[in-house]
Amino acid sequence: MSLKHSYTLIAPFYDRAIARATLAARRRSLAALNPEAGRVLLAGVGTGLDLPHLPPQHHYVGIDLNRAMLGRALPRAGQVDFQPVQGDAQRLPFAAGAFDMAVLHLILAVVPEPADCLAEIARVVRPGGQVLVFDKFLRRGQPALLRRLINPLLRRVATRLDLVFEDLLVATPQLALEHDQPALAGGWFRMLRLRRL
């Protein structure tokens, strides 16, 4: 089953499973957005759980592979300047340097090729721009035997449990890590702030 199809099935239940558990971390991550007005890409916007917490001065473009998720996101936009786009975060339909900032909340562990996704973010964010990441990552060398054991099954329908962010960063030298903070589940979920070089 492809992620597009599995998330079509998951969409009606996604908010109940994820919203409350991630609310505080999402708010903390989004509070780090540059206050200067700009264009912000919301990669993997999903059902729009971030939208009610976004500062109003920016223009937001939210991309998601799944139409059902985007349909649930639209009502959450409220007064925020928000443009939904159906598309693949691994092959972004935007020009190089088109955005001042990007937000990647719970997307890198979902897409089949997270390195491609992060490379695309580096391409579409202008030099000096900001990238905020909130997701679950293992540390290099961390055993996490149970996560690794169930990962082959779970990654086919929902999310990866074995992703190491440092490996993605090495493959994307245009991005520099500025801040790394544990967020949830004993530091499995992390909030990261990157700068486009």
Rank of each mutant, 00 (worst) to 15 (best):
S2D: 15
S6Y: 01
Y7Q: 10
T8H: 12
I10F: 15
D15M: 02
R16C: 04
A17C: 03
A17T: 02
R20F: 09
R20Q: 13
T22G: 01
T22P: 00
L23N: 07
A24R: 14
A24E: 13
A25H: 05
R28D: 13
R28M: 05
S29F: 00
A31K: 12
A31C: 05
L33D: 07
N34C: 12
G38Q: 03
G38A: 04
R39Q: 13
R39A: 14
L42S: 08
L42G: 09
G44S: 07
G46F: 01
T47R: 10
T47C: 08
G48D: 10
P52D: 08
L54M: 05
P55D: 04
P56V: 00
H58R: 04
H59G: 06
V61P: 06
M69E: 06
M69F: 10
M69G: 08
L70E: 04
G71R: 13
R72K: 15
R72M: 10
A73N: 10
A77N: 08
A77F: 03
G78T: 02
Q79L: 04
V80L: 13
D81R: 15
Q83R: 15
Q83L: 12
P84H: 12
G87S: 11
G87T: 05
D88F: 12
D88R: 11
D88Y: 12
Q90T: 11
F94D: 11
A95F: 03
A96G: 11
A96L: 00
A96V: 06
G97N: 12
F99L: 02
F99C: 05
M101S: 15
A102L: 00
A102K: 02
I107S: 09
L108P: 04
V110Q: 09
P112G: 07
P114C: 09
A115I: 00
C117H: 07
V124Q: 11
V124P: 12
V125K: 09
G128H: 08
G129K: 07
Q130P: 05
Q130M: 07
Q130I: 00
V131M: 07
L132K: 05
V133W: 09
V133P: 11
F134R: 01
K136Q: 13
R139D: 14
R139S: 14
R140A: 15
P143N: 11
A144Q: 10
L146G: 07
R147L: 13
N151I: 00
P152I: 00
P152L: 01
P152C: 01
P152V: 00
L154M: 08
L154F: 04
R156D: 01
R156M: 02
R156P: 00
V157I: 10
T159K: 01
L161E: 06
D162I: 00
L163C: 01
L163R: 02
V164G: 10
F165K: 02
L168D: 03
T172A: 14
P173W: 03
Q174D: 15
L175G: 11
L175N: 04
L175T: 05
E178I: 02
E178S: 08
H179G: 09
D180C: 12
A183R: 09
A183L: 09
L184F: 06
R190N: 05
R193W: 04
R195T: 14
